[in-house]
Design a protein around this nucleic acid. Structure first.
Length: 468
RNA sequence: GGCGGCAUAGCCAAGUGGCUAAGGCGGAGGACUGCAAAUCCUCUAUUCCCCAGUUCGAAUCUGGGUGCCGCCUCCA
């Protein structure tokens, strides 16, 4: 089946075909590891995960590269900028390298709990300083870069297509520029490839231009070209990367290779909180831990994201997350019916028709919400046959809700005390002493034990304790 | 100041010219129950921010208005 993706470069859905099928080179703009990833960051990785899974669903062999940016990013383009890694290090009283290690581990811990597949290659910027130096040297040799007092800069006047991806008019942009321009730069939008480090800068490496450290943007080009062997079938990131970061990558890649090396640019929209921006000042920046502390399953957050299309802003609210958690629980419950093949109702559509429609949704620029709706159609109304069970597992290869691992909690040995109470309640019920029976039931509920009366007798299950 | 996006039920959201406007959450009613819970069933937008227009036909296209959001800061 044909696969279509929306390409930011053309702002259109285009037929996807990798350069060397079945191999697909996928580059995912990774994290800067100076702090915990928040749920907005994580949305971008759930998106790239879905993308990767849809590619794999289509039998492509995905070679996914992700950068781990563990080298300082200046906060602004001006000299007084603070280095994020350094700020993080100072706060934690650790070396920048320790900080990077710590947050890298935290990052993958979070992504794994969201069932996000690990990249084929995760590469650290600090392990590729030489590649970046070589890259900058080539740009200098070819006249795409120039040296000034504080570093090496890319000369965008040498690249006529600068601004094409974001469709920005450079001259108009400059009118309202809020950043002080380094007067030594030839053009205000020229960007740093390599920065000369002041003596007290912790992270610095020797280079042909003295001690220093790489500019941002450069690691994605150097590492991406290295590990994807010169061609990116797809390059992803958040929409915020379109105007600066990816524009700069395109420019420097052009300077280095003399051609466009990215076929598809795909960007995920932002996650908003209560309809607005997530910001420290608003106190609404949440991490996965914050959600878990409130009793939410990380996969409920994944479900919430699956319910919306990646190119639309999604509105994160606690109410919506509760809805997602509930839906996920019910989805699992329904799935078990199929696993256990208990009887269901009749159906109109056969598994093949569902399979085709779901695949069509996936392949139409990752219309996961549509695929989810179809999944519910299967779960709600269809016969729980083995065929449907297999189809659900197949669909979950993309959804990534971990259905394969879902099973009924094992029958636990009932703690004696609780067993006694249950028996006591049954006695009371026989005597039609409802007051006592209900009191016991309420008591057990507070202990996290829910009783389920069935015609076959009393069942029980563990639930979350009230108020937790 | 410049650029761009969005507006669909209480909430989260699909759908972008033509079947009865997906799906989930919530809510209502029913079955079951001693009563509940859990589960299951049914219902839940004559209408897609407003106003004009194009068209045989528009939530979907065009123009205007209103509201919200984002970017132009090394924030996904």
């Amino acid at each position: 089946m044909e696969l279509y993706f929306f390409n930011t470069k053309t702002r259109k859905k285009e037929l996807f075909q990798p350069q060397q099928p079945p191999r697909v080179g996928l580059y995912v703009c990774g994290p800067t590891v100076y702090d915990y990833a928040h749920i907005g960051n994580l949305r971008a990785y759930v998106f790239s995960d879905i993308l990767r899974r849809v590619l794999e669903y289509n039998n492509f062999q995905v070679h996914q590269v992700m950068n781990i940016t563990d080298v300082g990013h200046l906060v602004s383009d001006a000299d007084e900028g603070e280095d994020k890694m350094l700020v993080g290090a100072r706060r934690q009283k650790k070396s920048p390298f320790e900080i990077a290690d710590y947050f890298t581990e935290a990052f993958f811990n979070h992504t794994q709990r969201l069932n996000i597949k690990d990249p084929t290659i995760a590469c650290r910027a600090t392990d590729h300083i030489q590649e970046m130096i070589d890259f900058v040297q080539v740009l200098l040799d070819r006249g795409y870069a120039y040296e000034i007092s504080d570093g090496i800069y890319f000369d965008i006047s040498r690249f006529p297509h600068y601004g094409k991806l974001s469709r920005l008019n450079l001259e108009e942009q400059l009118e309202g520029a809020r950043v002080e321009v380094n007067p030594e730069k030839k053009h205000p939008a020229d960007f740093a490839l390599w920065r000369k480090a002041p003596a007290n800068h912790i992270m610095q490496w020797p280079s042909p231009w003295g001690m220093g450290y790489p500019g941002w943007h450069i690691e994605c080009s150097a590492m991406g070209l290295k590990y994807l062997e010169g061609f990116f079938d797809i390059h992803t990131g958040g929409v915020d990367h379109i105007p600066i970061h990816h524009e700069n990558e395109i420019a420097q890649n052009w300077g280095f290779t003399g051609k466009e090396v990215v076929r598809f640019w795909m960007h995920s929209e932002f996650l908003q909180v209560e309809g607005g921006k997530m910001a420290k000042s608003l106190g609404n920046i949440y991490t996965l831990e914050d959600l878990e502390e409130k009793g939410f399953d990380p996969l409920a957050f994944r479900y919430l994201l699956l319910n919306a299309h990646y190119r639309k802003k999604v509105n994160f609210t606690w109410e919506a997350l509760e809805g997602a958690q509930r839906a996920l629980e019910r989805l699992r419950e329904n799935f078990l019916r199929f696993k256990e093949a208990s009887p269901g109702r009749g159906n109109q559509k056969g598994p093949e028709q569902f399979r085709t429609e779901i695949e069509r949704a996936f392949n139409d620029d990752l219309n996961v919400p549509r695929a989810l709706a179809l999944t519910w159609d299967i779960l709600r109304g269809e016969d729980p046959t083995l065929e449907y069970y297999k189809l659900l597992l197949e669909v979950d290869r993309v959804l990534g809700l971990g259905l394969e691992q879902v099973e009924r909690p094992p029958v636990e040995e009932i703690p004696g005390e609780i067993k006694k109470l249950i028996e006591q309640r049954e006695e009371a019920r026989k005597k039609r002493n409802w007051e006592e029976a209900d009191a016991i039931r309420d008591h057990l509920e507070e202990q996290g034990i829910r009783l389920i009366d069935t015609p076959q007798g009393v069942r029980w299950e563990r639930i979350k304790k009230k108020g937790s």
